[in-house]
Amino acid sequence: MDYSKQIQDIAAKLFADGKIDVFVGYRMNSFDDNQIPVVITDPKEVAELVFTEKSVFNLTNYLKADHTRNKRVGLVVKGCDSRSLNLLLTESQVKREKLYIIGIACEGVVDDKGQKMQNCVECIVPDAVVFDEMLGTPKGIRDYIVNADIIELAGKGLVERREYFEQIFENCIRCNACRHSCPLCYCAKCCIDQETATIYNGSNTSSSAFHALMTWSLHLAGRCVDCRNCEKACPSHLPLHLLHKQNEKVIYDNFQNHLAGVEEGDRGAFYKYSLKDPDDFIL
């Protein structure tokens, strides 16, 4: 999977035609063979752009940054990234007409060690679902695979599960990097940063980390697209996907196989009503 040349050509043409002000893509790191996101405003820098199986970061995160606000943006999205983009579009965070989207029919990306990422192995929507131009051969939607860690988690009782999570959150340093690197966390002031919400209140005690991460994951339930930006940002390497994948499975099972952002105009599981929604909690 190497679309570097195509992306460079498209970006150059977009700049030449005056269709975009900013292009968000990937470039090589200066020190190893990994890649970092790059925000280009100068057409001369287009030659730096690359796209291979090392293009990991979900670039839709940059749509909330100062550099892209109210600008015309060219953007590269993989399958998962395009799902978060779909949600950002329905949630009115970006305007479709301001974007030029290069969709990728993704074959999966690899981590720093060259191993295929777990979310790519279990990927359901490899092709970009929203795009102006598609690179690669679309493979279509795959069957839902339950995450291996979640199967393991399902064997645990409630108390055991709580203990398990508490033990994971012990290493949380409350830097909130997970939240800031999440493309779908765009609230002007997050509820866990509110001065009045005294149980979260910034202090890094394990109870406040537990509350903050739980609240965060529930806010993303039915919206998380499993791009794993949060895990990439976590300095303590916490397996944050456990929270999101667990939510995803519950929602998939209970809300008519809902997967966030796959369809255009998707509002997330909790934001739409269907007669088929479970109601067995009503006595």
């Binding site: 970092i36 790059v38 940059y62 940054a65 830097c175 990097a177 800031h180 690197s181 940002a233």
Partner: peptide, 20 residues
């Protein structure tokens, strides 16, 4: 430009000492 303002650099820095 490509900073995502995630703040983790300050939290793991051995010399950063700003607090709230």
């Amino acid at each position: 430009r490509n900073c995502v303002s995630c703040n983790t650099c300050a939290f793991i820095c051995p010399t950063c000492h700003c607090f709230k």
